[in-house]
Design a protein around this nucleic acid. Structure first.
Length: 272
DNA sequence: GCGTGATGTTGAA
DNA sequence: TCAACCTCACGCC
């Protein structure tokens, strides 16, 4: 279940196992048989991620992968077991295999098509050359809520529902505040925080957003068991008490997703 | 075994 | 705003 950090991690995982080598490519499920046939026995030259989009470079063509909500990648050591019939794409070499299941997108594309995808994505906190200033130009002019803007991949690429909720909490910002009512200073702090949080996410392959001084150990609470594996302040903690101020965490639908926030720490119209 | 929901996006209404 | 799509893990019977 992927936000941008997962995709960057997967790009590195593919590279580590297959880059510079010929791969065997198959589509046991059959939905990508033509594409797999075209890259079978080709060398995987490079891998790349932009936001939640993953690109595997085979000469002039790319495999474009988007996991969507359900997509999963499983890596393993050879010998690969017989694939189940939900495997959209299996890459394999003598040492490793990688099984892709349930992606929203798995398609062979040209360089031009890849460029078009980059062009419609905003800056990605995990791409070193990307710049949050580009996002600010859109946000500072928008009447849309900051919570909706953070999920808009045209504005900022790679942030998903967990990072959205958590970064707004960390900066004490009411999710319903309009983009144009943020200050440049607040946005710069959010962007640099996302850069740091998502880099940690790539490193540990999970989302942890709780500051050291707020960990259960530091606050004398029992160890946290968040069902998604990371330590967070508000994501999926509806009706539980905020660890910082004790207010009940709230949830509501926003931009077709479940939003979580603490009304105490993120007051409406409040200063951050 | 069945129903539900999930870290996402697109396209039609 | 809503349905559609893709898969799987979990809770409940």
């Amino acid at each position: 279940m992927p936000e941008g950090h997962t995709i960057h991690r997967l790009a590195a995982d593919y590279a580590e196992r297959f880059q510079g080598q010929q791969v065997r490519a198959t589509s046991p499920q059959g939905k990508f048989s033509d594409g797999a046939a075209l890259v079978d026995h080709q060398v995987l030259e490079t891998t790349e991620a932009h936001g939640k989009h993953l690109f595997l470079g085979f000469g002039p063509r790319w495999i474009h992968i988007h996991l969507g909500l359900f997509g999963k990648l499983g890596f393993g050591t050879a010998p690969a077991p017989p694939p189940t019939d939900t495997v959209r794409l299996r890459l394999a070499n003598t040492d490793s295999y990688a099984d892709l299941r349930g992606p929203t997108t798995c398609a062979l594309i040209t360089d031009a098509e890849k460029h078009a995808i980059h062009d419609r994505l905003g800056p990605d906190p995990l791409r070193p050359e990307d710049d949050g200033g580009r996002a600010w130009q859109r946000i500072s002019r928008s009447r849309t809520t900051i919570a909706a803007l953070l999920l808009d991949q045209k504005i900022i690429a790679g942030v998903g529902n967990v990072y959205r909720a958590e970064v707004l909490f960390r900066h004490g910002i009411d999710p319903y505040r309009a983009g144009r009512d943020l200050t440049r200073t607040q946005w710069d702090a959010i962007w640099s925080d996302l850069v740091a949080l998502m880099r940690e996410g790539v490193r540990h392959n999970r989302i942890d957003t709780v500051r050291p001084e707020h960990t259960p150990e530091a606050m004398g609470r029992p160890p946290r068991v968040d069902d998604h594996g990371g330590e967070v302040y508000v994501y999926r903690r509806a009706l539980q008490d905020c660890h910082i101020c004790g207010t009940e965490i709230r949830t509501a639908g926003l931009a077709a997703r479940n939003l979580f926030w603490c009304p105490g720490c993120q007051p409406a119209g409040g200063a951050a």
